[in-house]
Design a binder for these strands. Structure first.
Lengths: 164, 164
DNA sequence: TAATGTTATGTTATAATATTACATCTCCAG
DNA sequence: CTGGAGATGTAATATTATAACATAACATTA
């Protein structure tokens, strides 16, 4: 149940099948430890997210759930996503109204994302809770940060080469 | 056409009518200089955004435009917003799917926002293009950042007091 | 095991956000 | 005054998300 935790895995070469399988095992372990129920719908949604380095929309997921004989109505997907996000197994990419599996091994982080506008892959990095200047500004005016959304849009290394 | 540019104006006491009027004058000046057409719809949308320290959704704006005898269909609002965002007079808050007037005086900045989950006011701060760690991570893997979304959600000073 | 409470799922309906497509109008350059 | 570009008006529709309620699965304990 240990996992490596490199920066920006999505944009690097790796054995993706193994990476997804490991992550799923890891999630199962965490759920067992914490008494969380990784039900079939939830597990399948996580698996689908893990299989993709692209962010997936709720309706993309829903189609695949339907194909599996699981629920076919929006709340099914949204509820599974809510669970996964609440417990840190997935994140919502606000810019895209879509979701990615979390690629971290420790909880309590504040994630940051790099979104390639060309190939639509999304890589997760770590940010300090209140990244530099924003943290300062918040502190100086007395704003209490509870959650941060930090997303960078641009071109990944591969897409910069291929005539973007 | 000069404007002050304090941090997080929204959460501070100020003469809001004057602040909005100044900002509108400023925008008019910029448009004239740059040959941009601040048409009635666009100007009215900017004015509406400036009058509110809350983010406004496209349909909120649309209702008000309708009341003014301007267009009443979604594209009217979205087009005005597109113009305002493209030219830096407004920003979209991705977390809220809503829009705020820009409170800056110089272009080319990368804005950051503090969103109060209680009173829903939104304050704009400045961030360095690639705030700290994210910039580092991007650089190290060769991701080219074109745009950043940096939004912090939490409690503003006033709402921390009032039994949040 | 039956009764009960809680959590998760299924399903219908609808709300909220956003875009496409096309017709019309306005303004300015020529 | 006319042609073209940009802006607006409008209808239709796509996409994203939630509310509300019925049913099913699971856990506890009487």
């Amino acid at each position: 149940m240990t996992r490596t935790d490199p920066e920006a895995l999505a944009f690097a070469q790796h054995d993706h099948g193994a990476c997804a399988a490991d992550a799923l095992d890891y999630a199962r372990g965490v759920c067992e430890q914490q008494g969380l129920r990784l039900t079939p719908v939830r597990e399948r949604v996580l698996q689908l997210l893990l299989e993709s380095h692209n962010a997936l929309g709720a309706y993309d997921l829903l189609e695949k759930l339907k194909a599996d004989g699981l629920g076919s109505q929006p709340p099914v997907a949204y509820r599974a996503l809510e669970f996964l996000v609440a417990h840190g197994f997935a994140h919502k990419i606000e810019r895209l109204n879509a979701f990615v599996a979390c690629s971290r091994t420790h909880s309590g982080h504040s994630p940051a994302f790099m979104i390639c506008r060309q190939c639509h892959q999304v890589a997760e990095a770590h940010a300090t809770l209140a990244s530099g200047k924003l943290g300062q500004a918040a502190k100086s005016i007395g704003f209490k940060i509870e959650k941060t959304v930090i997303e960078a849009e641009g071109l990944c290394p591969a897409c910069q080469g291929s005539g973007a």
